[in-house]
């Protein structure tokens, strides 16, 4: 496929297919985060929150909102790509892509854009839900907020893609989210500021990549952060670069997709 028009048609086809997929199964993809997050807001925000008092100078529920949005964005963009790409492998419909003249980068971009759309859409849904519980919320820096939202969903879509490439069974696509992603998110400053931790655990937390994502996002929404914004954005971009390179290398080699 030498010509750009053909490539953009192919990319559009794959991306819209990916979007249709998660919209078609909206009960599994869009509703659960809205329900779970409502529960978090009710229990931790409205019931327990007032007893906790303030965190970094904000009402607890207000502090929690950016963290919970990020948590949903991360898990959903990851889940979208890992389950979609793995099913395509599993059902062999990956052959539809491999037999076509689409370049590898278009295949990767199509899946990542699918994950990004789901991640961002979930971000907006959870933000909408949070407004029901905390109507006065105002976003301090919308540009930074949207940038981090977008970059985060790219980053975790790419991770989901790599997971799917190496996955050989449905177990393999839930191991990483359960045993790696979720613990790192919970310990990555979603529910608390690392300032409340003893020095040792604060230092350990600094090695958790989720901390940078969550805090940069919180900086966008609330204007406070436990880490340096410039440094964190740099790290996110760096990771995106490395992961994109790795994905393209795996596709080129045919790992997990061509025998």
């Amino acid at each position: 496929m030498s010509n750009n028009r053909n490539i953009s048609v192919a990319l559009w086809t794959l991306t819209t297919k990916e979007i249709r997929r998660f919209l078609r199964i909206w009960i599994q993809t869009l509703v659960p985060p809205a329900v779970t997050m409502s529960l978090y807001f009710v229990i931790f925000g409205s019931l327990i929150g007032p007893r906790i008092g303030t965190m970094d100078g904000f009402d607890y529920i207000q502090f929690m909102i950016p963290g919970l949005i990020m948590m949903s964005v991360i898990t959903n963009s990851y889940a979208n790509v890992v389950s979609s790409f793995y099913s395509v492998k599993f059902q062999r419909s990956i052959e539809e892509l491999l037999i076509s003249p689409m370049p590898n980068w278009t295949i990767l971009l199509g899946f990542v854009l699918g994950g990004v759309c789901r991640g961002c859409l979930i971000g907006f849904i959870v933000f909408g839900v949070s407004l029901l519980f905390y109507p006065d919320f105002t976003v301090v820096n919308p540009l930074l907020t949207l940038t981090v939202l977008f970059l985060t969903s790219i980053l975790f879509s790419l991770m989901g893609f790599i997971n799917a490439v190496f996955a050989d069974s449905f177990d393999d696509i839930s191991v990483i989210p359960t045993f790696v992603l979720t613990p790192l998110i919970y310990l990555g400053g979603v529910f608390y500021s690392i300032n409340i931790l003893p020095d040792f655990w604060r230092a350990v937390s600094m090695a958790n990549p989720m901390l940078y994502v969550v805090n940069t996002f919180r900086a966008g929404m609330l204007g406070v952060s436990d880490v340096s914004i410039g440094f964190a954005l740099g790290m996110i971009l760096g990771f995106i670069g490395v992961l994109t390179g790795s994905c393209l290398y795996l596709l080129e080699k045919g790992t997990g997709i061509r025998q």
Binding site: M1, N3, R5, N6, I7, V9, A10, W12, T13, L14, K17, S87, V88, Q91, S93, E96, L97, S100, P101, M102
Partner: peptide, 18 residues
């Protein structure tokens, strides 16, 4: 994919060819 409609499968394949 068995979960898609026949016509969508073929139209999508055409899309992949540009």
């Amino acid at each position: 994919s068995g979960f898609e409609k026949v016509i969508d499968i073929v139209v999508t394949q055409a899309g992949f060819y540009g």
